[in-house]
Design a protein around this nucleic acid. Structure first.
Length: 580
DNA sequence: GCCGTTTTCGGCCCGACTGTTTTCAGTCG
């Protein structure tokens, strides 16, 4: 018996529609379309992805084609996607070339032309078949490819394989938010929390574990397993149900009694290593810990809340972000856990691109969006120099931009737009901007944007040379990694951190969801060394400013306190510190 | 495919790097 008729449907999210548009662009590229038509689709994907509201809502108002960058043709495709979940043009492409684009294009060195070539010559459709062909030395025999290419592809496959199963936290956040809203709105759901690595705010998640308190578990499960975006129901019972969503993400829902919700949360939040450590602590005290509570003999002495469980074990409360067995249990025993930075401590963003380079919004738009977040300052850091692909400005437009910022600052009360720039560190370790101009900037961000495959010694030397120029304040995306796409470059972070500390240079925690660079353990080591850190969203639109949350999550995972993070300085403190 | 104070055609961001086909295509950012 079905208990509900689902009125509210979980349609495609913006990022999913954006992904399909990107895939269409990819197919167009395979078939040698003009780069302008391709770019139109890519551009549309980018716009949808950073749209502040659901594209489905825009569609229902009939306003999709009024969005700048989206014309009649793409608006129609978006309409199809909203209505049916797919589009004719996309289906036709997929029938003609049934290749797993997302899987194959995630392999470094594989683009549209080679994917087409490999399908036509070797019928390679996915990662597995690619790996097999490479191991059997069939790729080197394809004309235009060779031994070296085959070897590089094999190496890239290894990396792609490791990362293909985990979803970026930012995407998981949207899906989880939706599920929590739907399930949480049921009258008989008393409490709901997403546990697991999601709750620990890990940069990627493998699945979602949702914990619910309800007196009507069957009704919860009926509703959950019949949601529109459920693909396969893997299992369904009153205590636990498990599904695969249509996009492949596994979601488990478990229902518990209120009395043991805390211990269940503790158990299912993990990490496994943290839990093992806790059970050892329990044993030492003659207690037993499980998802059903903390027990002395057979009597439950804690379980309703996590705080109660930790207290029973003689520990202070440990924030989920710290539960990785990196010393947090020992610190909790000594009551010496760090007071982690909070999102509300953040007073500004340092890494923001405007439409002066490759960003989508004006400086004023961005400043207003930042003020709405109660920020006191915003550093505009557009690309400059030779990085022409990223719409880098020449020195003349940088000068003009600085004048524009002066003008805007004259109009803004209690808020300051900082004059920054994202300067490229050249292969020789120089900053790609004239010294005179660099000195006029309030904040100089610098980082490497090419040559990631050079040796560890070379890259480290190059970056340290740039740092020693005395001209830069912040080293951006220090390892250059892109989650699920590009491995971090080889760089001696220990040496970089020592130099940063000595010269008072801050290391960025890039908060863009697929960068999160530095990563958690690296942040912790910077915190231990007393190196200054700074959060930058790498925003390319107003909406991206929201990525600050993920940066704060990451900082917290790295044991970062308010004191260690430059973004927590007030405007006046910041002006003093940067002497601006 | 999108856009328009040069407005319904004709322009739209491109340089570096790599490996291979030795003169350039494909990929990346």
């Amino acid at each position: 018996m079905k208990l509900f008729t689902l009125k509210e449907r979980l349609g495609l999210k913006n990022f999913e529609i954006a992904r399909i548009l990107e895939n269409i662009a990819f197919y167009l590229e395979m078939f040698g379309e003009t780069k302008f038509r391709i770019r139109a689709f890519q551009n549309a994907a980018k716009i949808i992805e950073s749209l502040p509201e659901d594209i489905a809502d825009v569609y229902r108002r009939g306003e999709v084609s009024t969005i700048p960058g989206i014309g009649a043709a793409i608006a129609e495709i978006i309409g199809e996607l909203v209505e049916t979940g797919t589009a004719k043009i996309y289906q036709e492409f997929r029938e003609k070339y049934p290749v797993n684009i997302e899987e194959l294009s995630a392999v470094e060195g594989l683009g549209p032309k080679r994917i087409k070539l490999l399908y036509e010559k070797l019928k390679i459709k996915n990662l597995e078949e690619l790996e097999k062909a490479a191991r059997e030395h069939r790729i080197r025999r394809v004309k235009t490819l060779g031994v070296k290419t085959e070897k590089n592809l094999l190496k890239a496959v290894e990396f792609a394989k490791k990362s293909k199963d985990r979803l970026l936290l930012a995407y998981a956040d949207e899906i989880a938010g939706d599920l929590v809203e739907k399930l949480g709105s049921l009258s008989f759901v008393e409490r709901i929390t997403v546990a697991g690595s999601y709750r620990r705010r890990k940069e990627t998640v493998g699945d979602l574990d949702i914990l619910v308190v309800s007196k009507r578990p069957e009704a919860v499960m009926d509703y959950f397993t019949s949601l529109e975006n459920v693909g396969i129901v893997l299992g369904k019972g009153p205590a636990k149900s498990s599904v695969l969503l249509k996009d492949g993400l596994q979601v488990d829902v478990r229902v518990f009694d209120e009395e043991i919700y805390g211990s269940a949360l503790l158990y299912f939040t993990g990490s496994k290593e943290h839990n093992v450590k806790l059970r050892i602590v329990a044993m030492e005290k003659g207690l037993k810990l499980s998802e059903y509570g903390v027990f002395r003999d057979d009597k439950r002495i804690a379980g309703r809340t996590e705080e109660e469980c930790y207290r029973a074990l003689g520990l202070s409360y440990i924030e989920p972000e710290l539960r990785e067995d990196m010393g947090e249990v020992e610190a909790a025993r000594k009551n010496s856990l760090p007071q982690l930075v909070e999102y509300s401590d953040i007073k500004g963003d340092f890494h923001v691109h405007s439409n002066w380079s490759d960003g989508m919004n004006t400086i004023l738009d961005l400043a207003e969006a930042a003020r709405e977040k109660n920020y006191q300052y915003l550093c505009i850091s557009d690309h400059v120099g030779a990085l022409k692909v990223a719409g880098a400005m020449d020195e003349e437009s940088l000068r003009k931009q600085m004048e524009e910022i002066d003008k805007l600052n004259g109009r803004l009360d209690d808020f300051r737009i900082l004059k920054g720039a994202e300067v490229n560190i050249t292969a020789e370790g120089n900053l790609d901007l004239s010294v005179g101009l660099i000195k006029e900037l309030d904040v100089v961000l610098a980082g490497i944007h090419s040559g990631f495959r050079a040796s560890k010694e070379a890259i480290t030397k190059r970056v340290i040379k740039a740092m020693e120029s005395g001209l830069m304040h912040i080293l951006v995306h220090p390892t250059g990694r892109i989650i699920n796409r590009r491995a971090p470059c080889e760089i001696d972070l220990g040496a970089i951190m020592d130099t940063a500390k000595e010269l008072g240079i801050a290391l960025e925690i890039n908060a863009f969801p697929d960068r999160l660079d530095l990563r958690d353990v690296q942040i912790k080591s910077a915190v231990d060394k007393g190196v200054s850190l700074v959060l930058g969203t790498d925003s390319h639109s107003c909406n991206h400013l929201n990525y600050m949350r993920f940066g704060v999550d990451q900082a917290r995972r790295g044991w970062c306190t308010k004191r260690g993070l430059i973004n927590t300085l007030s405007l006046s403190e910041l002006e003093k510190r940067f002497d601006i």
